[in-house]
Write a protein that binds this DNA or RNA. Structure first.
Lengths: 226, 226
DNA sequence: TTGACATACAAACATATGTTCGTGTATACT
DNA sequence: AGTATACACGAACATATGTTTGTATGTCAA
């Protein structure tokens, strides 16, 4: 008797989000996370609609259990994913923001706990440079200003948060005097710092140490066409 | 560079239970649930061993998040368990060779059958462009000749084998007359083909269609520093 | 109008659940 | 003897998270 009652736009949204979230993170979202992402102000409304989805046969809930959600039917309008296959996967790294020439990198206080609105990127173990996933984060590159470092618009940069660097390492640095963020190879010289682009056709820049705040070390870059 | 730490019996048990639980219920267990089922008296001990599993590379945790567990590697000795069929690892793509300016790309007859233990790269699903991993292969870039396409020495290029391309797509092409392999954006013009570098500072080249054998379409690029 | 019903909200509530800390007990090595 | 390390325990702690309640707003039909 479970009828195919028409799902409201909101309920469809919720289903889609739950599926996506579970695929990305490996476990279902909380009621509050659903509310945030689906623009629902009250947890009780989320709860209400979750029960509607249960009635409609799309969802299964475990009472009093945190994240006790399981999608048990295909979502209308969404290509059916191999549901259980999405549960375990490769390491995920928090995609915490973007990096552009004209703006500083703003990092959440605690990357590991920054769970709200963010996306996650799967990153193969080999590209984490041996660091723990929890101290690593990812940024989306905006603009073509990093072209001298062989990094282009849309690239995803994987970094480890740190404020110092060894010679030769690729770093993300904020230059306060220039109000500029840059990605370059780091070299400490006599009394200045040389920031060397990866592409030899471009010239290095020299900055005073006081004008160079290292935000992180670049571990890897991933680019997807199409 | 894999840490092959021996897991204690207890830790193996935990992994097995977590996997089983997640498969059955759709979400991971709590620390206390793990403790009950694995005969561990204190939640702190579970916590302790979970962190060990993270160190060993089997698990990923989301701090302060209830049920924030994700198994990211096969469980030793338990892989063939039917219930674990639900566990999906990152797609692996055959690393079949290298690509350099001066030499053609030599492709094995059948990529899917080119199975060598070591010559694989893990590639996140999002970077496969929707193609099946069996029709996709990877090449290591040698030399700085692709610098105009924002690709440098050591980069790993993920491609799909195909001999035609749509405008705008990034392709790997062999130019017989020039004895040269190149990676560029493909544009079919009136009676020639324009191969456009990604970096606008470099000029496109125009080739006769007869002098342009498309070997594959570039899906993504992955670069690791260090 | 009325009332029934579906949906939405905010705040208070109860507890499920991760974290931390002090301690204990082995084993191994100096 | 020590000292270090790995592992285990229990209890207190902090908060993440599901649940409930009271109320408000819309629509639709009698």
């Amino acid at each position: 008797m479970k009828e195919f009652k028409k799902l409201s736009r909101r309920q469809q949204n919720m289903l889609r989000f739950m599926s996506e979230y579970t695929g990305k993170r490996g476990f279902p979202p909380t009621i509050r996370e659903i509310g945030e992402r689906c623009d629902i102000a009250s947890t009780s409304v989320v709860n209400y609609n979750l029960n509607k989805l249960v009635d409609a046969g799309y969802l299964q809930r475990s009472g009093k259990v945190s994240r006790g959600l399981r999608i048990i039917a295909d979502i209308p309008g969404v290509a059916p994913l191999p549901r259980l296959a999405t549960i375990a996967n490769s390491p995920r790294v928090a995609l915490v923001g973007r990096i552009a020439a004209g703006e500083p990198i703003s990092l959440p206080e605690d990357i590991a706990h920054h769970i709200d609105e963010d996306d996650y990127v799967a990153v193969p173990q080999e590209f984490l440079g041996g660091f723990d996933e929890n101290e690593v984060f990812a940024l989306t590159v905006r603009g073509d200003s990093m072209i001298d470092s062989m990094i282009q618009d849309g690239d995803i940069v994987i970094l480890r948060q740190q404020s110092t660097a060894d010679n030769g390492e690729m770093v993300a640095a904020w230059l306060p005097e220039d109000s500029e963020t840059t990605l370059k190879h780091f070299y400490r010289e006599a009394d200045s710092i040389r920031l060397q682009p990866a592409n030899a056709a471009y010239d290095p820049i020299f900055v005073h140490p006081a004008n160079c705040q290292i935000k992180g070390k670049v571990l890897s870059v991933m680019r997807s066409y199409g």
